[in-house]
Protein backbone atom coordinates (compact mmCIF):
# COMPACT_ATOMS: atom_id res chain seq x y z
CA UNK A 1 0.00 0.00 0.00
CA UNK A 2 1.48 3.32 -1.02
CA UNK A 3 0.88 6.58 0.84
CA UNK A 4 -2.49 8.04 -0.10
CA UNK A 5 -3.23 11.04 -2.24
CA UNK A 6 -3.11 14.60 -1.00
CA UNK A 7 -6.02 16.14 0.89
CA UNK A 8 -7.11 18.45 -1.95
CA UNK A 9 -7.26 15.58 -4.42
CA UNK A 10 -9.22 13.63 -1.86
CA UNK A 11 -11.96 16.19 -1.45
CA UNK A 12 -12.33 16.41 -5.22
CA UNK A 13 -13.25 12.74 -5.41
CA UNK A 14 -16.04 10.76 -3.85
CA UNK A 15 -15.45 9.96 -0.20
CA UNK A 16 -14.77 6.37 0.79
CA UNK A 17 -16.41 6.55 4.21
CA UNK A 18 -19.22 8.52 5.79
CA UNK A 19 -19.84 9.41 9.40
CA UNK A 20 -23.31 10.36 10.46
CA UNK A 21 -24.55 10.69 14.03
CA UNK A 22 -28.14 10.18 15.14
CA UNK A 23 -28.85 10.75 18.82
CA UNK A 24 -26.20 8.68 20.65
CA UNK A 25 -25.25 6.48 17.72
CA UNK A 26 -22.52 7.32 15.23
CA UNK A 27 -22.86 5.44 11.94
CA UNK A 28 -19.56 4.86 10.19
CA UNK A 29 -20.15 3.50 6.70
CA UNK A 30 -17.63 2.05 4.29
CA UNK A 31 -18.80 3.45 0.98
CA UNK A 32 -16.71 1.22 -1.27
CA UNK A 33 -16.30 -2.56 -1.18
CA UNK A 34 -12.51 -2.71 -0.83
CA UNK A 35 -9.94 -0.94 1.34
CA UNK A 36 -7.76 1.65 -0.34
CA UNK A 37 -5.11 3.79 1.36
CA UNK A 38 -7.50 6.65 0.85
CA UNK A 39 -10.08 4.77 2.87
CA UNK A 40 -7.50 4.19 5.61
CA UNK A 41 -6.85 7.94 5.75
CA UNK A 42 -10.53 8.78 5.77
CA UNK A 43 -11.23 6.21 8.46
CA UNK A 44 -8.48 7.92 10.46
CA UNK A 45 -10.23 11.26 10.00
CA UNK A 46 -13.51 9.70 11.11
CA UNK A 47 -11.76 8.36 14.23
CA UNK A 48 -10.32 11.82 14.94
CA UNK A 49 -13.88 13.07 14.88
CA UNK A 50 -15.17 10.22 17.07
CA UNK A 51 -12.34 10.54 19.61
CA UNK A 52 -12.25 14.32 19.83
CA UNK A 53 -15.65 15.76 19.04
CA UNK A 54 -18.33 13.11 19.28
CA UNK A 55 -20.74 12.77 22.20
CA UNK A 56 -22.07 9.51 20.72
CA UNK A 57 -21.87 6.51 23.03
CA UNK A 58 -22.10 3.93 20.27
CA UNK A 59 -20.50 3.42 16.90
CA UNK A 60 -22.01 1.16 14.25
CA UNK A 61 -19.67 0.22 11.41
CA UNK A 62 -21.34 -1.06 8.25
CA UNK A 63 -20.86 -1.38 4.50
CA UNK A 64 -23.26 -0.50 1.69
CA UNK A 65 -25.03 -2.34 -1.12
CA UNK A 66 -24.71 -5.82 0.30
CA UNK A 67 -20.97 -5.73 0.98
CA UNK A 68 -19.55 -5.13 4.47
CA UNK A 69 -15.95 -5.05 3.27
CA UNK A 70 -14.17 -7.38 0.87
CA UNK A 71 -10.57 -6.68 1.95
CA UNK A 72 -7.62 -4.85 0.43
CA UNK A 73 -7.85 -3.14 -2.94
CA UNK A 74 -4.79 -4.27 -4.86
CA UNK A 75 -4.97 -1.18 -7.08
CA UNK A 76 -2.77 0.58 -4.50
CA UNK A 77 0.07 -1.87 -5.16
CA UNK A 78 2.68 -1.59 -7.87
CA UNK A 79 4.28 -4.96 -8.63
CA UNK A 80 7.26 -3.22 -10.29
CA UNK A 81 8.13 -1.12 -7.21
CA UNK A 82 9.62 -2.18 -3.87
CA UNK A 83 6.86 -3.20 -1.48
CA UNK A 84 6.01 -0.73 1.28
CA UNK A 85 5.05 -1.98 4.73
CA UNK A 86 4.08 1.49 5.96
CA UNK A 87 0.49 1.26 4.72
CA UNK A 88 -0.01 -1.96 6.67
CA UNK A 89 1.31 -0.22 9.76
CA UNK A 90 -1.21 2.60 9.26
CA UNK A 91 -3.98 0.03 8.98
CA UNK A 92 -2.95 -1.67 12.21
CA UNK A 93 -2.78 1.66 14.03
CA UNK A 94 -6.28 2.37 12.78
CA UNK A 95 -7.60 -0.96 14.05
CA UNK A 96 -6.08 -0.31 17.48
CA UNK A 97 -7.88 3.03 17.59
CA UNK A 98 -11.20 1.33 16.82
CA UNK A 99 -10.44 -1.38 19.36
CA UNK A 100 -9.68 1.15 22.13
CA UNK A 101 -12.45 3.63 21.37
CA UNK A 102 -14.26 4.82 24.49
CA UNK A 103 -17.59 3.93 22.91
CA UNK A 104 -19.37 0.62 22.42
CA UNK A 105 -18.79 -0.51 18.83
CA UNK A 106 -20.87 -2.84 16.68
CA UNK A 107 -19.91 -4.29 13.31
CA UNK A 108 -23.16 -4.48 11.31
CA UNK A 109 -22.29 -7.02 8.64
CA UNK A 110 -24.29 -7.72 5.50
CA UNK A 111 -22.66 -9.65 2.70
CA UNK A 112 -18.96 -10.41 2.26
CA UNK A 113 -16.78 -9.71 5.29
CA UNK A 114 -13.39 -10.67 3.96
CA UNK A 115 -9.73 -10.05 4.71
CA UNK A 116 -9.29 -6.56 6.13
CA UNK A 117 -13.06 -6.38 6.53
CA UNK A 118 -12.98 -9.39 8.83
CA UNK A 119 -10.06 -7.82 10.73
CA UNK A 120 -12.09 -4.66 11.20
CA UNK A 121 -15.06 -6.67 12.47
CA UNK A 122 -12.80 -8.38 15.01
CA UNK A 123 -11.81 -5.11 16.70
CA UNK A 124 -15.45 -4.14 17.25
CA UNK A 125 -17.06 -5.04 20.58
CA UNK A 126 -19.95 -6.95 18.99
CA UNK A 127 -20.47 -8.49 15.53
CA UNK A 128 -24.00 -8.72 14.11
CA UNK A 129 -24.38 -10.33 10.67
CA UNK A 130 -27.22 -11.17 8.32
CA UNK A 131 -27.71 -14.84 7.51
CA UNK A 132 -26.39 -14.38 3.98
CA UNK A 133 -23.13 -12.83 5.19
CA UNK A 134 -19.88 -14.70 4.76
CA UNK A 135 -16.73 -14.24 6.84
CA UNK A 136 -13.42 -15.14 5.28
CA UNK A 137 -9.76 -14.69 6.07
CA UNK A 138 -8.28 -15.35 2.64
CA UNK A 139 -5.00 -13.43 2.96
CA UNK A 140 -2.71 -16.41 3.47
CA UNK A 141 -4.28 -18.07 0.45
CA UNK A 142 -3.36 -14.96 -1.49
CA UNK A 143 0.21 -14.98 -0.24
CA UNK A 144 0.18 -12.35 2.49
CA UNK A 145 -0.90 -12.11 6.12
CA UNK A 146 -4.22 -11.22 7.75
CA UNK A 147 -2.79 -8.26 9.64
CA UNK A 148 -2.75 -8.75 13.36
CA UNK A 149 -5.69 -11.05 12.84
CA UNK A 150 -3.01 -13.64 13.61
CA UNK A 151 -2.89 -12.11 17.10
CA UNK A 152 -6.61 -11.53 17.58
CA UNK A 153 -8.52 -14.35 15.93
CA UNK A 154 -7.53 -17.15 18.29
CA UNK A 155 -8.74 -15.09 21.24
CA UNK A 156 -12.24 -15.34 19.81
CA UNK A 157 -12.34 -18.85 18.38
CA UNK A 158 -9.43 -20.73 19.95
CA UNK A 159 -6.07 -21.53 18.41
CA UNK A 160 -7.16 -24.68 16.59
CA UNK A 161 -10.06 -23.04 14.79
CA UNK A 162 -7.99 -19.96 14.08
CA UNK A 163 -5.34 -22.04 12.33
CA UNK A 164 -7.93 -23.67 10.11
CA UNK A 165 -9.68 -20.37 9.35
CA UNK A 166 -6.46 -18.55 8.47
CA UNK A 167 -4.57 -21.33 6.69
CA UNK A 168 -7.45 -22.76 4.68
CA UNK A 169 -9.03 -19.34 4.15
CA UNK A 170 -12.41 -20.87 3.49
CA UNK A 171 -15.58 -18.75 3.58
CA UNK A 172 -17.65 -19.27 6.72
CA UNK A 173 -21.39 -18.71 6.74
CA UNK A 174 -22.84 -16.37 9.36
CA UNK A 175 -24.51 -19.31 11.10
CA UNK A 176 -21.25 -21.28 11.26
CA UNK A 177 -19.36 -18.17 12.38
CA UNK A 178 -21.86 -17.67 15.19
CA UNK A 179 -21.35 -21.24 16.42
CA UNK A 180 -17.62 -20.69 16.88
CA UNK A 181 -17.88 -17.23 18.45
CA UNK A 182 -16.71 -15.26 15.44
CA UNK A 183 -20.14 -13.65 14.98
CA UNK A 184 -22.25 -12.81 18.02
CA UNK A 185 -25.72 -12.43 16.52
CA UNK A 186 -27.19 -13.63 13.22
CA UNK A 187 -30.08 -11.57 11.84
CA UNK A 188 -32.47 -12.53 9.11
CA UNK A 189 -31.61 -11.02 5.75
CA UNK A 190 -33.16 -7.56 5.65
CA UNK A 191 -33.48 -7.37 9.44
CA UNK A 192 -29.97 -6.15 10.23
CA UNK A 193 -30.99 -2.71 11.51
CA UNK A 194 -33.43 -4.13 14.05
CA UNK A 195 -30.86 -6.64 15.29
CA UNK A 196 -28.23 -3.90 15.64
CA UNK A 197 -30.74 -1.69 17.49
CA UNK A 198 -31.41 -4.54 19.91
CA UNK A 199 -27.66 -4.95 20.56
CA UNK A 200 -27.26 -1.22 21.16
CA UNK A 201 -30.17 -1.25 23.60
CA UNK A 202 -28.53 -4.15 25.42
CA UNK A 203 -25.44 -2.03 26.12
CA UNK A 204 -27.60 0.21 28.32
CA UNK A 205 -25.96 3.51 29.20
CA UNK A 206 -22.45 2.54 28.02
CA UNK A 207 -20.78 5.01 30.41
CA UNK A 208 -17.80 6.28 28.42
CA UNK A 209 -15.10 5.98 31.10
CA UNK A 210 -16.23 2.58 32.39
CA UNK A 211 -16.61 1.32 28.81
CA UNK A 212 -13.16 2.51 27.77
CA UNK A 213 -11.48 1.13 30.88
CA UNK A 214 -13.30 -2.20 30.73
CA UNK A 215 -12.28 -2.69 27.11
CA UNK A 216 -8.70 -1.74 27.86
CA UNK A 217 -8.37 -4.16 30.77
CA UNK A 218 -9.88 -7.00 28.75
CA UNK A 219 -7.38 -6.41 25.97
CA UNK A 220 -4.49 -6.17 28.39
CA UNK A 221 -5.48 -9.48 29.98
CA UNK A 222 -3.97 -11.14 26.93
CA UNK A 223 -0.65 -9.36 27.18
CA UNK A 224 -0.04 -9.14 30.93
CA UNK A 225 0.04 -11.50 33.86
CA UNK A 226 -2.57 -11.21 36.59
CA UNK A 227 0.04 -9.71 38.90
CA UNK A 228 0.98 -7.10 36.33
CA UNK A 229 -2.62 -6.28 35.52
CA UNK A 230 -4.16 -5.99 38.97
CA UNK A 231 -2.37 -2.70 39.63
CA UNK A 232 -3.83 -1.38 36.42
CA UNK A 233 -7.23 -2.64 37.42
CA UNK A 234 -7.08 -0.84 40.78
CA UNK A 235 -6.02 2.40 39.12
CA UNK A 236 -8.79 2.04 36.54
CA UNK A 237 -11.37 1.09 39.18
CA UNK A 238 -10.48 4.14 41.25
CA UNK A 239 -11.00 6.30 38.20
CA UNK A 240 -14.32 4.59 37.42
CA UNK A 241 -15.76 4.97 40.92
CA UNK A 242 -14.77 8.63 40.93
CA UNK A 243 -16.98 9.34 37.89
CA UNK A 244 -20.51 10.73 38.03
CA UNK A 245 -21.93 7.48 36.59
CA UNK A 246 -20.98 5.51 39.69
CA UNK A 247 -22.03 8.34 42.00
CA UNK A 248 -25.46 8.26 40.29
CA UNK A 249 -25.62 4.52 40.91
CA UNK A 250 -24.92 5.16 44.60
CA UNK A 251 -27.64 7.80 44.71
CA UNK A 252 -30.14 5.42 43.15
CA UNK A 253 -29.15 2.85 45.74
CA UNK A 254 -30.12 5.38 48.42
CA UNK A 255 -26.54 6.13 49.45
Amino acid sequence: MAEGSKAEERTARARTVSLHTEAEVAHLRLLRPTITMRMVHELGEALDQLEDHSAARFVVISGVDGVFCAGIDFADFRPDAPMDIHGFHKWEQLLVRVEKLGKATVAAIDGPCRGGGAQLALVCDVRVATARSVVQFDEIHLGFLPGMGTWRLAKYVGLGRAKRLLLQGAPVSAAAAERIGLIDVVAEDGALDAAVAAELAAFGPAHPVATELGKRLLLESYAESFEENIGGFLAAQHRAISQSAFLDTLKKAGR
Binding site: L234, A235, A236, R239
Partner: peptide, 9 residues
Protein backbone atom coordinates in the same frame (compact mmCIF):
# COMPACT_ATOMS: atom_id res chain seq x y z
CA UNK B 1 0.89 2.42 41.60
CA UNK B 2 1.44 6.03 40.62
CA UNK B 3 2.55 4.96 37.17
CA UNK B 4 -0.56 2.78 36.81
CA UNK B 5 -2.82 5.61 37.96
CA UNK B 6 -1.30 7.97 35.39
CA UNK B 7 -1.56 5.33 32.67
CA UNK B 8 -5.27 4.78 33.12
CA UNK B 9 -6.15 8.44 33.60
Amino acid sequence: KVIDAIKYT
